[in-house]
Computed example of a mutant assay.
Amino acid sequence: MVSAATVIGFLLIMVVNTVLAAVSIRFFRLRLSTQWGAVVYSAVFIPLMYFVTTILLSGFVGFGGTGVEDRGTALIVVWVIPFTLAVSLELFWMPAPDEVELPEQTG
């Protein structure tokens, strides 16, 4: 049976990963001049950030101990679902990068 600490730990990791991915994708889409640049940076840097946050926060969940029996399912819950949610937030609910006014860049 899954303990309450394990569920809270998973929810914490999911929320942190979703926020990190959503902010990163938005930043890449607004600042990079090409569409593929944002895709490549998102595909490379977001999994690296997920790796760091999962390592730092997984003590609450117990990836190495008895907290999770199936690591594949755990990684889907803490990596795939937050990334999918962040991409859907960016694509469907945020205004397009062309509609956002950025401050003038100096230098």
Rank of each mutant, 00 (worst) to 15 (best):
N17K: 10
L91Y: 15
Q35F: 07
G107H: 13
I81W: 02
M94V: 10
V68G: 00
D70W: 03
G64P: 01
V15I: 14
V2M: 10
A4N: 13
V52T: 10
L20S: 10
I76E: 00
M49P: 00
R71E: 00
G37I: 11
V19P: 07
V40M: 12
A74W: 01
V68L: 10
Q35L: 08
T6N: 05
I13E: 07
E104P: 12
F28A: 15
A96T: 12
Q105I: 12
V16R: 11
E69C: 01
M49K: 03
W79P: 00
S88A: 13
E90V: 14
T54E: 08
I81K: 02
S58H: 12
I76T: 11
A21F: 04
I25C: 07
V87G: 05
W36M: 14
L20C: 15
L89W: 10
G59I: 03
W79M: 09
L85K: 02
A5H: 14
G59D: 03
V39E: 05
L11K: 05
V39L: 12
L48S: 07
A96D: 00
T53G: 04
I25F: 13
A43L: 12
A43G: 15
A5S: 13
N17D: 09
L89C: 01
W79G: 08
A38N: 05
T34S: 10
A4K: 13
Q35Y: 09
W36H: 11
E99H: 13
I76Q: 08
V15W: 02
G67A: 04
V68I: 15
L57Q: 11
V19W: 01
W79H: 15
A38I: 07
T53K: 04
E69W: 06
S58V: 09
G37N: 12
L85E: 05
A5T: 09
L57C: 00
L91P: 01
A4T: 10
R71W: 02
E101G: 06
I55Y: 08
W79S: 10
R31W: 08
G59Y: 03
P95S: 10
F45Q: 07
D70M: 02
T73Y: 09
A43I: 07
F27T: 14
S58F: 02
P103C: 14
L85N: 03
G72M: 08
V19Y: 00
F83D: 05
L102K: 15
I13G: 02
F51I: 10
E99G: 08
L48Y: 12
L56H: 00
E104H: 14
M14P: 03
V61I: 07
T84V: 14
R71P: 06
M14R: 06
E99Q: 15
V7M: 03
G59E: 04
T53M: 14
F83R: 03
S42W: 00
M94A: 15
A22N: 01
L30G: 04
V39P: 00
V68A: 01
V44A: 15
I76D: 03
L30W: 09
V15D: 05
V68C: 01
L11M: 13
Y50G: 12
V52H: 05
S24T: 14
F83H: 02
S58G: 00
V16I: 15
L57S: 03
D98L: 11
F27W: 12
G72L: 14
E90N: 15
V7H: 03
V23H: 03
R29P: 05
V52M: 10
I13V: 14
R71H: 13
Q35E: 05
